[in-house]
């Protein structure tokens, strides 16, 4: 899952996959803006089956690859 997310971010930002660390701050480093975030939300919904609710939209869930993975795991555990 982590690799899938990293590949997706790399594809939409045109940034080499290897240069995005698991704890890189995606917003602070300027890798992701509003469009990146919206693309990611669509990707999580369509490819990974995870819907992002309005209340999920916070830094804790989206600021890095690690945060996104943790968010997805929490969401999936709620469903199961």
């Amino acid at each position: 899952m982590k690799d899938q997310i990293k590949t997706f971010i790399s594809e939409i930002t045109f940034i080499e996959k290897d240069t995005i660390a698991d704890d890189t701050l995606l917003f602070e480093e300027g890798i992701f803006d509003s469009m990146g975030l919206l693309s990611l939300i669509t990707f999580l919904d369509e490819e990974l089956g995870v819907k992002t609710e309005d209340s999920d939209l916070n830094e804790e869930n989206f600021q890095s690859i690690n945060s996104i993975v943790a968010f997805l795991e929490r969401k999936k555990s709620l469903v199961n």
Binding site: F27, E28, F32, D33, S34, G36, L37, L38, L57, N58, E59, F62, Q63
Partner: peptide, 8 residues
């Protein structure tokens, strides 16, 4: 009030 980029 957050460091998130805004969404519309």
């Amino acid at each position: 009030n957050s460091n998130m980029p805004p969404v519309f």
